[in-house]
């Protein structure tokens, strides 16, 4: 332990010189993101963009291009918004592309467990991107956010696939909503 009473003068002197050589202030969340980014492994077809430049890691966009499955051929954009309390708090992710998907609603909300109730600080940006890719390979009708889409997938998987493909390539009205082409 320290006895401040006796060191107060020394402390005063050193405080003046101590602040000379420090890096730009940044949050613990940003520090952790630097690690995440240096280790990011993007699958084929997935790209990342930092709209505010290489030193502003808290906001970025991810683009997925599924290479197989029901959503093959589509291009899907996601916005990532990371709070300074990352990784305590999960990244905030929205789907910017209007997509007919049982786990994504028309406002771009995504039902992915690791984005909400199962988020843990040991997870990373990589885990979230894998999660999103998985959601497009294997949409889950059990946990619907768009229940019409979930119902169609459960009842008639072939019709679901052709509706999705039509919306991706030509744009289509499904359940009364228009989904513009996204290829």
């Amino acid at each position: 332990m320290i006895k401040l009473f006796s060191v107060k003068e020394k402390q005063k002197k050193e405080a003046a010189s101590a602040n000379g050589a420090k890096g730009v202030k940044q949050s613990a969340g940003e520090l952790r993101l630097q690690k995440d980014m240096s280790e990011l492994n993007l699958s084929k077809g997935t790209t990342i963009n930092f709209p505010e430049g290489k030193d502003k890691l808290l906001i970025f966009d991810i683009t997925l291009r599924p290479q197989e499955g029901i959503y093959k051929g589509g291009v899907f954009n996601f916005s990532f918004n990371i709070s300074t309390s990352y990784p305590h708090d999960a990244p905030k992710v929205k789907c910017k592309t209007k997509v007919y998907h049982p786990n994504i609603d028309l406002e771009g909300n995504i039902c992915l467990n690791i984005l909400r109730e199962d988020w843990k600080p040991v997870l990373s940006i990589n885990s979230v991107i894998y999660g999103l890719e998985y959601l497009f390979l294997d949409p889950n009708p059990e946990d619907p956010l768009n229940k019409e889409a979930a119902a169609m997938l459960s009842n008639n998987a072939r019709q679901f696939e052709s509706s999705v493909q039509a919306s991706i390539h030509r744009g289509a009205y499904i359940d009364g909503n228009y989904f513009p082409p996204c290829k």
Partner: peptide, 9 residues
Amino acid sequence: GATNLYMRG
């Protein structure tokens, strides 16, 4: 600090 000098990936 917040400046990324050299980043892999």
